[in-house]
């Protein structure tokens, strides 16, 4: 289980990243925390010809808050995300999610940018970003463009990122003092959830973002509306029409639909008790 050979280049500026992407095109992969990518390399599930290590790019680091918006650099590691006071204040949903992500050693290396760019549909952070209605900042030589989370996740491991782009940061409108909850059911500590729910209240409305139930993290607008109106049972019923979960080793689609309803009830209780 050794990776196929590849070349390796380190970038320290975004300009270098863009140069390298231009030179190597689709045969290159960006290496951030590497906690999914290096495993895929070891398993030879990925065999890029060159890895572009962006860990030294200072412009992709840091967490800041200005003008009511939290900006989280793409290279922010999960452990940093979980410990950051600005995140805890303005996007507590993310802080809640961090302890559910794998194990301490993984959280020390894995990055938010890597997680979002990989877009594993069972991962916590993509769903949180969706529930937070965050904006993803995509950088290329042409400059930055901003993509709403709902437009970013396009399919199984598919995102709006173009081959010449780097995910630079995530921007989130402050959710300070707004109730939120992260609920998930995983077989063991740190496992990907069978079903998970990131729920964020928002000025009388409610955003429910699900993970582990489809090809991408998903919002369920009808359930959101019902729950916002206080109709938990109605929201649970609505899920049947809004979720079409896959069958896998955990069980049939009905398992996930059932568990989603349970999580919805628990999320409603958690939000109420907030």
């Amino acid at each position: 289980m050794k990776p196929a050979p590849f070349a390796y280049a380190r970038a320290t500026t975004l300009a270098e990243v863009f140069d390298l992407l231009e030179t190597h095109g689709d045969s290159a992969r960006l290496l951030a925390g590497g906690q999914s990518l290096v495993a895929a390399l070891n398993l030879r599930l990925a065999s890029p010809s060159v890895l572009l290590d962006i860990n030294g790019v200072a412009a992709l680091r840091g967490i800041s808050f200005a003008d009511g918006r939290l900006r989280i650099g793409a290279l922010t590691r999960h452990a940093e995300l979980g410990a950051d006071p600005l995140v805890a204040q303005h996007a507590p949903l993310l802080a809640q999610a961090v302890p559910h992500i794998a194990h301490a050693a993984i959280r020390n290396r894995g990055t938010i940018g890597g997680s979002l760019a990989l877009a594993d549909p069972a991962a916590e952070l993509p769903a949180c970003i969706l529930a937070l209605e965050a904006v993803l900042v995509l950088a290329s030589r042409e400059g930055e463009r901003r993509v709403a989370a709902r437009d970013f996740f396009q399919g199984l491991y598919q995102t709006a990122l173009r081959g010449d782009e780097v995910l630079a940061a995530v921007e989130i409108a402050s959710q300070a003092d707004v109730p939120c909850t992260l609920q998930e059911l995983a077989r063991r500590h740190g496992d990907y959830a069978i079903v998970g729910l990131a729920a964020q209240s928002a000025r009388g409305a409610l955003r429910l973002a699900w993970f582990g139930v489809g090809a991408t993290p998903l919002r369920t607008p009808r359930a959101e509306a019902a729950l916002a109106a206080g109709d938990v049972a109605g929201a649970q019923a609505a899920l049947a029409g809004e979720l079409d979960p896959p069958e896998d080793l955990h069980g049939p689609p009905a398992l996930r639909l059932h568990l989603a309803r349970v999580l919805l009830g628990r999320a409603a209780a958690a939000l109420k008790g907030h």
Binding site: Y8, R10, L31, G34, Q35, V38, A39, N42, L51, D53, N55, A79, A104, A105, I106, N108, R109
Partner: peptide, 14 residues
């Protein structure tokens, strides 16, 4: 910091 030695390339430890 604790890391998984199998999920980090040696060259990343520069």
């Amino acid at each position: 910091e604790m890391v998984r030695g199998c999920l980090m390339l040696a060259v990343q430890a520069e």
